[in-house]
């Protein structure tokens, strides 16, 4: 069993953090093979950002294939660029606050969540990625929720004041993901 995940969006949307947290949680909680690969460009700010996470029971070949099982897309440009890489039967998680385009594929599962709007309602636009992680985990259950949360807690260790907000963001995402799954 091997899961190839792509996370893509604008720089500044916390795309790399989603990938890194997933990989860290998988490393902490399982004995599986894991890779996290950030695609890198020359721009420091404002470009598109995307990263690849592979979680597998066996040795991983490429940490960045062009055939994805799951895809988390945070903006329209990323959808257009990467959607052809999602395999038939793959799962697409979309930030519907920003991505207004028609998905136009019937061979995949689409889970929509307005994570930018939700983050603004929570009072901090930066937590959109934590909400999206919740959505993804609530739907896929690819990793145990408590393990991922403790990874987030650990990574936010230097800013404990932010924990309650992130917890709320994570929970709201989980609810959407679980509801979609049901």
């Amino acid at each position: 069993m091997e899961t190839n995940i792509l996370v893509a969006g604008f720089g500044g949307q916390g795309v790399m953090t989603i990938g890194k947290f997933l990989a860290s949680a998988a490393c902490d909680a399982t004995d599986k093979y894991i890779t996290f690969f950030p695609s890198y460009g020359a721009e420091q700010r404002g470009g598109t950002a995307n990263c690849y996470v592979v979680i597998s029971d066996e040795e991983i070949g490429s940490p960045m294939t062009d055939e994805m099982d799951d895809m988390i897309v945070m903006n329209g440009a990323s959808l257009n660029k990467f959607l052809p890489m999602l395999r038939t039967g793959g799962r697409l998680f979309v930030n519907s606050s920003i991505v207004k385009e028609e998905i136009g594929r019937s061979d995949i599962t689409v889970v929509k969540a307005p994570v930018t709007d939700m983050a603004l309602e929570l009072g901090n636009s930066k937590v959109l990625n934590i909400i999206m992680m919740g959505v993804y985990l609530g739907y896929t259950e690819v990793l145990p929720v408590d393990v991922v949360w403790s990874t987030i807690e650990h990574k936010l260790g230097k800013k404990p004041a932010l924990l309650p907000l992130n917890r709320m963001a994570f929970e709201q995402g989980l609810q959407i993901g679980r509801a979609e799954r049901a």
Partner: peptide, 10 residues
């Protein structure tokens, strides 16, 4: 190379 250098693995 750029993959082994920039990717994360356990």
């Amino acid at each position: 190379d750029g993959v082994v250098g920039t990717m994360m693995e356990p």
